[in-house]
């Protein structure tokens, strides 16, 4: 009996612990999002767009004050979800590489990386939330 009680309490404890760690709220401050976004950027965007966001001559466009980075959120989120291969032209220079879809990233990861990009490399624009990414993803399906 005693033993059973102990097991039950143990299980309950584990469950509540798991629940606590799962519902641990995501920090929604800009700072927290930018910090997380930098990690995503380093793993998934940096090789092409480079550490300084300046891109690569003729191949990968810069992420510095472009109309996509600073502009419409839906369009920006769509680029990350679907990739891009249309031949972006910035300052008369056409970029000749292919950006793959990054739809395997979670809504939060995409929100974070775009918030990081929009607040780095000299950019200043509103944060993007995971709810916004979720909404765009749902529409694309």
């Amino acid at each position: 009996m005693k033993k059973q009680l102990l097991t039950v309490t143990g299980i309950l404890f584990c469950i509540s612990f798991l629940m606590m760690s799962q519902t641990k709220p995501v920090q929604n401050t800009l700072k927290a999002s930018v910090e997380r976004g930098k990690k995503v950027y380093t793993e998934r965007c940096l090789t092409c767009h480079q550490a300084d966001g300046g891109g690569v001559q003729n191949m990968n466009p810069p992420l510095i004050k472009t109309k996509w980075v600073l502009g419409d959120k839906t369009q920006l989120i769509t680029i990350v979800l679907k990739g891009l291969n249309t031949g972006v032209v910035i300052d008369d220079i056409e970029y000749h590489n292919v950006m793959a879809s990054h739809a395997d990233l979670t809504d939060l990861q995409i929100a974070d990386v775009l918030t990081y990009v929009r607040n780095s490399f000299g950019n200043k624009a509103k944060a993007i939330t995971s709810a916004e990414v979720k909404a765009v993803r749902a529409k694309l399906k």
């Binding site: 990739g83 291969n85 292919v98 950006m99 793959a100 879809s101 395997d104």
Partner: peptide, 11 residues
């Protein structure tokens, strides 16, 4: 890049 079904896409 490497003749993937989807060019440069992870997986």
């Amino acid at each position: 890049n490497a003749c993937q079904v989807l060019d440069r896409q992870k997986g």
